[in-house]
Design a binder for these strands. Structure first.
Lengths: 220, 220
DNA sequence: CTTGCTATTCACCGGCTGGTGACAGGTAGG
DNA sequence: CCTACCTGTCACCAGCCGGTGAATAGCAAG
């Protein structure tokens, strides 16, 4: 189908095709802004994340962001509020029908679940990258929301299992989760990490195997 | 000592204290620019790293950066060139008088050395954070220089030791180095990582212990 | 001194940013 | 009808950014 002459004309001189008659609906607009913000952050990263960009993405005036969210800070906080539900939506909260008999079973499963969840969620990756790049109030709030949600998830999954005596589980687990986060971040940006290619499914299987081996090496 | 009145005045109305009579010395200016760039990147991060900021930091006109380095890209490349020497300056190239008998001995030592070296070098930390936040040509070059230098160091230290059969050392080592990098980055920004405080020397001892445990768990 | 080269600075551009005040348009109540 | 409110838009500001062309200041040789 050829575009009609007036469409071409409109495109050329930048008249919006059909004014779209933006319905006057605050709730919908708020949602559109929030969605645009999350989409922008996920796709473009925090670098060019600003009031103007979000407004452009939401197709509305930036003034509305100030009105409805009190500026970028408030908007970021709203994103953080969603993070709580992220964990619940994206990571299974049960044991997947398995019986986790030992702390090692648990940690292996948590590590693999977290790896996959993070791999599947660009927004979360951007936030993690943001966390290690800046230390503004904005990021701190976001970071806190994320870590809280994550800690809650782990706590729920842990059940009554306790780490083996003589092992500083907090420190070890911090290293394990740090490894996962950096691996996924690096892969998301450059498709590899420390010489390990991370593109194909096979690559990721290798990584998962290594991860399991590490967890099992510590927790048996 | 109280600042003299004219110092106060100068500070207030922003007249440079003593025109400084910048000597006409290209080599010195180039060095000043490079130093300013590294200092800026290390102290402020890549966020506000730009031509104007570097020129301000070096106390010269940005035009000189274009002339001498061909713009920011060239300057970044010059920083990358220094990275090669970083490893040699900051990480011992010998075994520290120890005899590394096993691959496990080797990896434990490498991990701990790398941890300390990264902790001590804010510039390197910023670069790593940059690497996982952006994927521009600039960063790719920098990243490549860094990983090359690192790989070379590891290769030199490795000597004739080989990993145990049946273990995907590339993948496992990638996870270990990823863990170290994320841990140090997170600590540098927020003083903690995944609930593990990382401020005092004692905190870091815990981390080091966990790291050793992980390495030993895999490589024995 | 004059000529020429080089190091350095200056002035200016367009474009984007965050932020704000005034205005337009639809919708409800009196 | 008019009024009052709410949603959305527009125009404009100062400030910074990267980038560039032209002018200036110091040195060195003829």
């Amino acid at each position: 189908m050829m575009p009609s002459a007036d469409v071409v004309l409109r495109k050329t001189i930048e008249i919006p095709a059909e004014p779209e008659k933006r319905v006057r609906n605050r709730a919908a607009t708020e949602q559109a802004i929030l969605d645009a913000a999350k989409r922008l952050l996920a796709e473009e990263g925090f670098q060019n994340f600003g009031i103007n960009a979000v407004a452009r993405g939401a197709g509305c005036d930036k003034q509305l962001i100030y009105r409805y969210y009190g500026g970028l800070d408030g908007l970021v906080e709203a994103i953080g509020a969603d993070l709580g539900s992220w964990v619940q939506d994206r990571i299974p909260d049960d044991t997947g029908g398995m019986f986790l008999l030992t702390y090692g079973d648990l940690m292996e499963r948590l590590a693999l679940l977290f790896l996959d969840a993070l791999r599947a969620d660009p927004l979360m990756r951007r936030i993690v990258a943001w966390e290690v790049s800046e230390n503004t109030e904005q990021v701190r709030r976001l970071s806190e929301a994320r870590s809280k949600a994550l800690a809650g998830w782990i706590e729920r999954m842990r059940g009554s299992l306790t780490p083996p005596k003589g092992i500083d589980a907090v420190a070890v687990n911090a290293m394990i989760f740090a490894a996962i986060q950096h691996l996924v971040l690096s892969a998301g940006v450059s498709g590899q990490c420390a010489g390990l290619a991370l593109k194909t499914a096979k690559d990721w299987e290798k990584a998962a195997t290594a991860l399991k081996r590490i967890v099992r090496g510590v927790y048996g």
